[in-house]
Write a protein that binds this DNA or RNA. Structure first.
Lengths: 159, 159
DNA sequence: TATTGTTATACTCTATAACTATA
DNA sequence: TATAGTTATAGAGTATAACAATA
């Protein structure tokens, strides 16, 4: 049904094939966007049982292990606006997963720390995310995954 | 100013350093999201002079070179909902950059084709995007860029 | 003066459902 | 019965500006 239009084209290739060979084919930005979209979908699916979104999960990850970032630190690392961090932390705090600690050396800043509940939820969520990621990249060799991770680190943190 | 809190921490590393070493450090999803955010910013900045967004630019790229995709084809390749493609094409068509051609073999489907104006605008925009991308990845070697592209292709199109 | 957190607002993007015309 | 395009709507994400408290 769909191929009837395709064979009517000037070449033997389908529109889908021609799109793959389009100007976007070696466009890292486009590949990044598409890869990210797939990864986001998988992430949200994996996190739904924990009532977390990718962004709230990322905040939990940054707050785990006594990292003690300020809201500003979190905003910069996650490339979020500080005002977005406010409502994300509000939500996590309401749920008892993190809390705001006053910084004794600067009364303007809040240091965000994890509660025991948060730690426990994050542990489970972390496992689920890693499993989903393993599944999503199961067609890559361990070596390819390693190299992808290294290269992405360079692109994500250019400094 | 900022380091006063950091040195008060239990380790000598700043919160920023500790965040980099967090559970997210080897999380391909996170690196993908951050790299994509940087790439999107650069892309939008490069495309602003042409009055294009990344998504409308991507559609132009898919419509160039007599690819003749249907709106459905575009939606799938770009991972957009078909309803989003409608308004994107509406806008591009209003601006005279693309047009909808009826498919002679299936009266339900529109084949999207480029106008001469669209072709010309795309050529300039394409150059600008490639320049911005070169700039963004100037700290990567040509070999690293090549490998990144190959690996991303595998992740973006797993099939 | 500059910075942290906060509130408010508007805009873009994403996801879903329902409808029509065709197949 | 299924598919292409369309309309409508709500929710999530993004960007910006302004403010109070503090440095």
């Amino acid at each position: 049904m769909k191929s009837s239009r395709d064979v009517a084209g000037d070449s033997g290739a389908s529109a889908t094939d021609r799109m793959r060979a389009s100007a976007l084919k070696d466009d890292v930005s486009f590949l990044l966007a598409r890869a990210n979209a797939l990864s986001l979908s998988a992430g949200h699916a994996a996190l739904a049982p924990f009532n977390l979104r990718v962004r709230s999960y990322s905040i939990l990850a940054l707050v785990a292990d006594d990292i003690r970032p300020s809201q500003r630190d979190i905003a910069e690392h996650l490339r979020l606006d500080p005002s977005q961090v406010v409502s994300l932390i509000d939500d996590l705090q309401t749920r008892g997963l993190v809390k705001r600690d006053p910084d004794p050396t600067d009364r303007r800043t809040n240091v965000v720390v994890m509660t025991d509940e948060g730690r426990e939820l994050f542990r489970s969520a972390h496992d689920a995310v890693r499993a989903a990621e393993r599944d999503l990249h199961s067609h890559l060799s361990p070596d390819q995954r390693e190299r992808l991770s290294e290269l992405l680190l360079l692109v994500a943190f250019p400094d």
